[in-house]
Design a binder for these strands. Structure first.
Lengths: 189, 189, 189, 189
DNA sequence: CATGAATGAGTGTTCATTCAT
DNA sequence: GATGAATGAACACTCATTCAT
């Protein structure tokens, strides 16, 4: 159950090298020769693991989105705590692995023309969306539609700071403060 | 008669066609031959107007960011009205010219490795940032640091819905609602 | 009679700029745009003066070879003096205008595939050849065939140092010494 | 069986075809597509063997200069014989492989702007220079400086007839005759 | 004479992909 | 699996030349 299909092995190595290359040079700059070189194999050997570049890109999409599972809002009765925990986890991840957000931004753009990448991203995002809406719904202050809109707003704001991690703390603080009761909001800051 | 220079002429034509191609195929898919073909000239003639592809991309960046001037928050005493107007204008632009937001997203990613595009985007964004912070500062409810963080949050949320215009109405409504909920806001009405 | 057809005027200017560009970048690197730019006119205007690049190259060939008239062996009864004067003049020219020899070397190579340049060079070279053979013939020590071979040898040696002017003094000294009587030969050195 | 590596193989084939093309069309006219075509491979495959055109040109320079090893003056006690043998070998090479001299002339010109070609030529030429000076030094008639100047003169003359092989016999005869005319030379016979 | 716009053939180079070994 | 050689379509860019103004 652990590492079901990746992590070690040539395939996983290749995906991680490709991920790093996308992070530094963009999807546009991704070169199969560099990926192979980064793993220490010939570039034509790479095609034994990924028949086509597209397959590798899709694997990178799966890999990248999977890394976000650590940010899932924890279970619990207190919506404010769950939201705060979620934003904290995201902030920590953004600080320590900013490339994860960069690559996601790259994939978001690619997804417009690439159904497979689109699907991988949607799989990830629908989970995120649902979990977040759940948090706001249990807060009980709003109806479901508003809760969903609020979740969407948080997601949008997170996406919006993917390329500028230095702005994230202030933005996340605002998000947390605003959707919390007036009194706590001010003292949290 | 004044300012006719920007939109007419081969240069402007080329920029607009390039812009459209970026919107549909991404910066990655931008091909000079297609740009030239879209204008009806030989691809080598394009180099007469833009010595290099980079020059064309920079012109696209200038063109794209310039289109956002219509969304500038209007002057006036009422911060809630100014914010609502700004979000309305953005929503209208997003509805009618979604490519503008797509291209901006593309440029944002390119800007990570392209100082010239970075500069063009920064020029545009710093104006946006300042104007928005100004709105919140005059609202008087928060100090300057909070106003700036709030502006950043709005910017982040707008950036976050660039690729999903269908979510924008709900998100923008949440943004407007949240920052007009306070006591001061209601008493002015 | 002075400056019969060149020197001043756009044509002459263009030829001299082209000559300089060939000297520095080779015939291979000659660009009409640079020639025009060097004179301060548009590159399409250049075609009013030289319908084609070939015409300009031929003009450069004429110009380059014409500069060698100052090295013609002087008239006089003393063959040794005539040879020494000739070699002196060549050495002086090589010192002060090395580009002249570089361009000639370029043209020599081009002449293999370019009959017009071939003709210009032959015109110049046949005069040189005849004059030099004349010097050796009047020396009286050898028959005409030997005189011509000697002239050819001097020409070959001069051509051979065109690209290495620093070797020219020693080589020219050897040439002069060898074809002079034993006694004078040693004291000239 | 040893050394079969230099002449066989795609690399060697490509170099020889490139050499021939330089001989006929000049370095200026060298086209990678023609080289590949001459070997019967796709022009992009050429880049598998030579990453850049420059690498191919340098290989041509190495190849061309290496062909001259057959003209090295033989060892032996008699300077006149050594010089005559050298000139004979050069004359034979010039007759049977005139392209070798043409290509060398092309490379000489290119070397002015190409340090790598310059180095290849210098490697070859310094050997030639040293060997020739050695011949004249052992002749004993002149001091070392004069011997070097004489070697330089022979080299210059040889270079000077590279493009006109028909003049070489007469010139080489003059060179041999002149430096074997002295009293010491005759008394050895 | 001079210009700016346009042309089109051609240049070296790149890169994912294929295939025989 | 792994490799090296080969492919071919595509790319940005160059440059002499032409032509309408």
């Amino acid at each position: 159950m652990v590492g079901g299909e990746m992590s070690a092995g040539r395939r996983g190595e290749l995906v991680r090298v490709a991920f790093d290359l996308v992070a530094s040079g963009g999807l546009e700059g991704l070169r199969l020769r560099q990926v192979a070189e980064g793993v220490g194999i010939d570039h034509s050997t790479l095609h034994h693991h990924f028949p086509t570049k597209q397959h590798l890109v899709e694997a990178v999409a799966e890999y990248a989105t999977a890394q976000f599972h650590v940010t899932a809002p924890p279970a619990g009765p207190d919506p404010r705590f769950r939201l705060a925990s979620h934003l904290d986890a995201l902030l920590t991840l953004l600080r320590h692995r900013p490339e994860l957000f960069v690559v996601t931004a790259e994939l978001d753009l690619r997804a417009r023309r690439d159904p497979a990448v689109r699907a991988a991203l949607d799989r990830h995002e629908s989970g995120w969306r649902t979990a977040l809406a759940g948090v706001f719904v249990t807060a009980g202050r709003d109806d479901e539609a508003v809760a969903e809109a609020t979740a969407e707003t948080v997601i949008a704001a997170v996406k919006g700071v993917r390329l500028t991690p230095e702005l994230a703390p202030a933005v996340f603080a605002r998000l947390a403060a605003v959707w919390t009761d007036g009194t706590e909001a001010t003292e949290e800051e």
